[in-house]
Nucleic acid binder design. Structure first.
Lengths: 137, 137
DNA sequence: CCTTGCCTTAGATCCTGTCCAATGTAGGGT
DNA sequence: ACCCTACATTGGACAGGATCTAAGGCAAGG
C-alpha cells in the first residue's frame, strides 16, 4: 500500500485533497475500517469531506485492486489496505472485527474442474469465523 | 432437509400455515433463494403471508441449523436448504447466483495455531468467486 | 490563466432487514 | 368439543448501509 498515491497518479488518477486524505487514512494503522470509520478519520483532517466521496473513492480503490473489500455477514463492509499480499480473514462473529491470516494450502487447487459448473473461477476467499478474545471476556 | 417439518415438530416448534409454506418452498428446488424470493414463492400459495414472518421463520431455521445463511458481498443474503451436508460455495460476481461445491482439503486444519490471535475458531467458509455461464454469454 | 471534464457535495432515495403494538391462532388442558 | 394462553403473524414504521442526482467546484493540460 505504500506509495499508493504515486502509483495512482501514474495511472491518470486525478489527485484531490479528498482522495489524498482517504488514502492516508487507509495507509495509517493497518486495521480494517468500515466506510463510515474511514469517513470519520478523514473528516478529522478535512472536515468538509462528504460520505459520498469516501464511498466513491473506496469503490475506485477496490476496482483498481489497491484495497480489498471484505463483507462481514450483513454488517458494514470493511476495507483492507493490504490488497497486495494475498491473505485470508478471521472474523469475529460477535463484534465483526477482522484479522488477516495466512493459512497453508491452496484452496484454488482444491476445486476439481468437475465442480466448476461452467464458471470462470477468478478467486477464492477463505473466512474463518470465531469469537475474538475481547468478546470472549 | 427432507422431513424438516417432522424434525421441527419434535422439537416443539409450533406449526402454522405460514411456516409450513416457507419450509415447502425451501424444500422445493434446491436453489439458493433470497428472503424476498422465498416470500414471493410463499405468497403464491398463501397470499397474505407477510415479509416479517418469512424473515422470522428463516432466522429460526438458521438458528436451528436447518438452513444455511450465505452472505453475498452486500447483496441480499441467500438461504441454503442443504445445511445438513457440509459444503462450500461458488458465487457469480455478476448476478449473485450460487452453486454448492465440495472442494477437497480441509481449510480448518490449514490455519496454524500461531495464526489464531486468541480467537476461538468455530468454522471456515470457502467462497469461490467467478462468472457463471449465463453472465459470460 | 483558461477551459474542460472529472470530482465533490448534500440530500434524496434505495434496499435489506428489524422492530413494534395490535390481532390471530395452535394445541394443551379440561 | 371448547377455551385459554402463550406464541405467531401482520403491516407499517424504522434503521443502517450504500448509491444516485443535479448543481457547483477545481485539477491539470494547453
Amino acid at each position: 500500500m505504500s506509495d499508493l498515491l504515486g502509483r495512482l497518479r501514474e495511472r491518470g488518477w486525478r489527485l484531490t485533497a479528498q482522495r489524498r486524505v482517504v488514502a492516508e487514512v487507509l495507509d495509517g494503522d493497518h486495521v480494517h475500517l468500515t466506510a463510515d470509520e474511514v469517513h470519520a478519520r478523514a473528516a478529522e483532517r478535512l472536515p468538509e469531506i462528504s460520505r459520498a466521496t469516501v464511498y466513491n473513492t473506496l469503490r475506485e480503490l477496490v476496482h483498481r485492486g489497491e484495497v480489498l473489500e471484505v463483507s462481514t455477514d450483513g454488517r458494514a463492509k470493511r476495507y483492507d489496505p493490504n490488497a497486495r499480499h494475498p491473505h485470508h480473514h478471521l472474523l469475529c462473529a460477535r463484534c465483526g472485527s477482522i484479522r488477516d491470516v495466512h493459512p497453508t494450502g491452496d484452496p484454488l487447487s482444491d476445486l476439481p474442474a468437475s465442480q466448476s459448473f461452467g464458471f470462470t473461477v477468478l478467486e477464492v476467499e477463505v473466512t474463518y469465523r470465531g469469537i475474538c478474545p475481547d468478546c470472549a471476556a
